[in-house]
Design a protein around this nucleic acid. Structure first.
Lengths: 192, 192
DNA sequence: GATCGTTGTTGGCGATGTGTCAATAAGCCG
DNA sequence: CGGCTTATTGACACATCGCCAACAACGATC
């Protein structure tokens, strides 16, 4: 089999397994067996096990951001906020299992490289939020930090919504939309 | 040595090591060597390695909540919110290293038992917030869920503040206080 | 005070997982 | 067909973990 497709196949299998069980409970032997190859081949393509896991997390986190530019641009602020929140909740509920696995980062605690990948994903998400709000022009460091904070709220609330199941989608939507409006109108100005 | 003190000593050593390096990079041999005992003794006292780690996380998470009842009760809402946020930022900045390590232990999530310990800590923190606001009476499930969401924001913002260092304490305070006020005044009523 | 039981403590065994590498098989081109 | 590249394998060496039998130190009992 050609290298590209084989690598992709192994990666797909790894995504599926790491989506179900945490990092420590998935052995490279499991990945190899599920992919129908020898264990050494996994190391040949991805190096160490953590390197494979980094690729898996990258795949899981980059799946969602596809149709962001389809958001309305010329509307009022409240409508744009509604659009962002709705889009986020759609993505989260659609890819719920893999998204939850990626956010939980499946079992690597405080590892520098895994943290860096997740932090990078949060960075781009924060910039997406600012861009969708039309605030990406004079985006100072403080404003971007607050945007990252809001992304953290969104991530955590999404997990609360999906895993606990005590909040309805409407309640989550209201929480995220109202909070974002408050941030834009009352907190962001102080940072600029 | 007596069992209690020996167990406590090993636990203290484990807290120190797990605070520095992530879970997978700390072996039980390291803990045993740093404690000056044989490796088997660690298993004797704590069972498996994950059980030891659970104890460590519990210790790290229960350090902060000590002087919560010293908050003013009879003041206005804004002042109570200010007090909560100030108290939180004080605790976080004081125990920054161990607090960050405990929060990063959320990275070990995906494991059912570790998740349960962290979820428990977030639960009590959310109830503390509601109690400090005087809302603990008619605390429905949805309201408690939203309070957990806010705790997630606070945790994430605290990490953003300490690790990134682009936000000043005043900015973090304004963000958390304004957001909490918005939640209480505009989002919570809809949930009740 | 000697003996015995209790208990803290140790070192090692078997099992599992991981990284590496030489050997092999399979395809391709001349 | 023969040689070469390369994907792929199986096995070796090493680390870590859970478990357990053996040892030692201390106190209780007669």
């Amino acid at each position: 089999m050609e290298p590209d497709s084989r690598r992709e196949q192994i990666l797909a299998v790894a995504v599926r397994l790491f989506g179900r069980r945490p990092y420590s409970e998935v052995s490279t032997t499991d990945v190899a067996r599920a992919a129908g190859v020898a264990r050494g081949l996994v190391n040949h393509y991805f190096g160490t096990k953590k390197d494979l896991y980094l690729e898996v997390v990258r795949v899981m986190l980059t799946v969602p951001r596809v149709a962001l530019e389809s958001l309305p641009q010329g509307e009022t602020l409240d409508r744009r906020i509604d659009s962002i929140v709705s889009w986020f909740l759609d993505v989260v509920s659609r890819h719920s299992t893999s998204w939850l696995a990626a956010i939980n980062a499946g079992g690597m605690a405080g590892d520098a490289e895994v943290d860096a990948v997740i932090a990078e994903a949060i960075d781009v998400a924060a910039d997406d939020v600012l861009q969708a709000l039309g605030l990406d022009d004079g985006a100072g460091a403080a404003l971007r930090g607050m945007a990252r904070s809001y992304v953290g709220l969104a991530v955590f609330t999404g997990r609360e919504w999906l895993e606990r199941g005590v909040l309805s989608r409407e309640q989550v939507h209201a929480l995220l939309a109202t909070t974002l409006a408050t941030l834009v109108e009352r907190v962001f100005p102080q940072a600029a």
